[in-house]
Design a protein around this nucleic acid. Sequence first.
DNA 1: TAGTTTATTAAACAATCGTTTAAAAGCAGA
DNA 2: TCTGCTTTTAAACGATTGTTTAATAAACTA
Lengths: 210, 210
Amino acid sequence: MEFTQKGIDTKNRIVDTAIALFAKKGFAATGLRELANEAEVNLAMINYFFGSKKGLLKDILDTFFTGYSSLMQQHLRGPSKPEVKLRHFIRHAVEYFDENRDGLIIVLTELPHEDPEITEYKAKWARKMMIIVREEICTPLKETSGVVVSPVVIGPLLVSMMSSRFLFAPIIETVNPPGLKEEFLDKYTDLVTGIFLEGLSGLTHNQDEG
Amino acid sequence: MEFTQKGIDTKNRIVDTAIALFAKKGFAATGLRELANEAEVNLAMINYFFGSKKGLLKDILDTFFTGYSSLMQQHLRGPSKPEVKLRHFIRHAVEYFDENRDGLIIVLTELPHEDPEITEYKAKWARKMMIIVREEICTPLKETSGVVVSPVVIGPLLVSMMSSRFLFAPIIETVNPPGLKEEFLDKYTDLVTGIFLEGLSGLTHNQDEG
DNA sequence: TAGTTTATTAAACAATCGTTTAAAAGCAGA
DNA sequence: TCTGCTTTTAAACGATTGTTTAATAAACTA
């Protein structure tokens, strides 16, 4: 079964609106008819291209994980010192999260939920990422600084820090009107990097007020 | 409408199993019939006590927010230095998260989702917490250290750090079998506190391997 | 152009959803 | 025991769910 150009177009249209809707309303709370209408696509096309609703979710998760995993390979692997690599990685990861806010929200909100079809799949990615964190951060850190941390603790901690602003964004923007600041991303990256490496006491002269 | 003891019992039974199911499968993915069966309660009792499914969710969110907000009032308010208060607060918050893992997961996974009935409600709590963070952390930090951070950035960041392990727990435990370590909570608290205040470079001799 | 594959459509499928109803049961105080 | 209130029950409500089917349209290939 080969896809033609027109087919790819509608397939992308489905994925794009699915990402937006799943992030806004949640995966389970989003109906396929609503999705089909929003994407201006016939209802049956979703099952035609993705087999099932969960197949569509898997496709979305896969895209996000692939991009994130590639970022880890690219910036965390290598002989440099962990602190140096972390600086680079955090900058690119935050940027990636910003460009894929909805995908990030879907991943984080669906992560804890048990679903036999999806769980095994998520575990596969988790394993892959834990290995990198262990080999590139935990082990070197132990050898050079004597600091012993587990990858299954420091990994999620780092992800949570980098994604915090984006996960809370929908509710924050109802409290604090969206800043629309050009420099926000840089400031946020500096803050996360600074705190992760040197803590609150190591911060000097950040200004992201507003 | 006054509740009798028997009524309170079944009401609690509904809430308890709802917390477990909502955390495990997600709010929208959990059916009321499944919940009623699990709680060994008649289906109609849910609407009888909580008005609607969303009413039940609100009740759960409210309990969690009330407890967390109380913790902020208790340990963040006061004349002590921010660093000192933060140490105390983080310890108690992590403990609270551990004792209410399922409630925490429900809050975090439902947070980003748009729902007119719930959004306004969540915003009310968010506002309340932001005020405390601003007055007790951001402002003092600015005056003493010159460090300028926004409460809508540092607040979510701190929450994300403290909750990271619990949010990722379900998927991590499929990769790394649950440790069941008595001392884990203390180690985790020390790690979060240490990184938040002094960063990765400030850590000395943590061991939570396994 | 004929033949084959891919894309799209409207309609129907059975199942489940949250909610409501009206009647029965349980339980209090008088 | 009777009265008024709370709790519980079974049944049905209409709406919506994800999925499938069979037929048609469109696109590509030889």
